[in-house]
Simulated scan of single mutants.
Amino acid sequence: MTWGSTSVAARHGSSASRGRLRSLEICAGAGGLALGLERAGFDPVLLIESRPVACETLRGNRPSWDVRETDLMQFDPAENQQVYDVHLLSGGLPRVKSPAAVARTRGDDAELSVLKAAVDLVYGVQPLAILFENVPELIRKSDYAPVRELVAKELGHLGYRLRWHVLNAKDFGVPQSREVGFLVAFKGDLMDRFEWPRPNADPPPSVGETLQASMGARGWPDAARWAAQADSIAPTIVGGSWERGGADLGPTGAKAKWERLGVDGATVADQVPDAAFSWNPALGRRGRVALTVDQVALLQGFPPDWWIAGRKTAQYRQVGNATPPPLAHVLGESIAEALWARDDVRVWATGR
């Protein structure tokens, strides 16, 4: 797995040589965004997450992180003084529906309420930089224009300048085509120093390259043969809804793409194949391999030692809805590079 981009690190040195920056993470989930930002030089002073199982995941992997199981809309920064001195406010926010979609379905706007709560938190915390992740449609589609305008207006009042952009994780070493929408904002003139990360020169590994070792872990003799034909990257992994359904790899179109890779996309396995498994895609689903949660995590760019709490479906939801850590890493490096341009940031982080 290729972590990060040489475009920033090679030009300016590692975070270890420059000191560490401080972040506040909201809607932290399984930690994909926080992990990538950690590798880019950010240490979270606090992580806010409402789902108990995701909090368990975060604490299990990083016992030193201060993880708070609370609803963002109930969080009061006045009772958590450490959040007033952060360089970055980050979060993988729930997928916002467009105002038009909310009107058509007569559904509630819970996701939009979380976005508004995140913007309100900026008023209280006043970070130097902001990084919010959401659906690419939020950036691209006219239906979402009122949402973008609302965010721009509120942040503009506070002296922030912002940019919206869509990045694809496959361009940064992740073996999956996954478009992700991002909002990046800086206070003052720091936006002039920010550059979106440039794609890697090398292509990402294929599904077969990424998963061959794990597929053969229980002695399956066809692991290498399967990997050789699974020679492209994965389609977008869909985490699905927390409220309904079991674990599978996505809608009908995605399942057809998995089928071409010799994978049963309609389920998630408890274990990788054993020595007795007969791989024969011509037999339909029973002749294809199913991926485990751990394998899906590898396709999302998580390191092999990142532990996921809960039962299988809850594990899959966390992994499938996460921000790919390598994507968070390169974005974190670009944000850090802009922040290091400020004299007060350098003095605070290094004492020089």
Rank of each mutant, 00 (worst) to 15 (best):
M1C: 10
T2C: 06
W3E: 14
W3F: 13
T6M: 08
S7F: 13
R11A: 15
S15I: 01
S17R: 10
S23F: 06
G29R: 02
G31M: 04
G41F: 13
V45Q: 09
L46R: 15
I48D: 09
C55P: 07
G60L: 02
R62D: 05
T70D: 04
E79H: 07
N80T: 13
Y84P: 00
D85P: 00
H87A: 14
H87L: 01
L93R: 07
L93D: 04
P94Y: 05
A100D: 12
A101V: 03
V102D: 01
T105G: 14
G107A: 15
D108Y: 01
D109C: 09
D109Y: 09
L115H: 13
L115P: 09
V122Q: 11
V122F: 06
G124L: 09
V125Y: 12
V125R: 12
A129M: 04
P136C: 07
P136W: 05
P136V: 03
E137L: 13
L150W: 15
K153P: 00
Y160V: 10
A169R: 06
K170G: 09
D171M: 08
V180C: 11
G181L: 04
F182T: 02
L183A: 09
V184D: 04
L190R: 12
F194V: 01
W196L: 14
A201M: 11
P205M: 10
G208W: 01
T210M: 10
T210G: 07
G216K: 05
R218V: 00
W220Y: 06
A228H: 11
Q229G: 05
A230M: 06
I237M: 15
V238F: 08
G239M: 00
W242M: 02
E243L: 04
P251L: 04
A256K: 14
K257Y: 03
W258K: 00
R260A: 14
L261A: 10
L261R: 10
L261G: 07
L261M: 09
D270H: 01
A275R: 13
A275N: 07
L283Q: 15
G284L: 07
G287A: 05
L291P: 08
G301Y: 05
P304M: 06
A309G: 00
K312M: 03
P324S: 08
P325Q: 06
A328W: 07
L331Q: 12
W340T: 05
V347I: 11
A349T: 11
R352E: 06
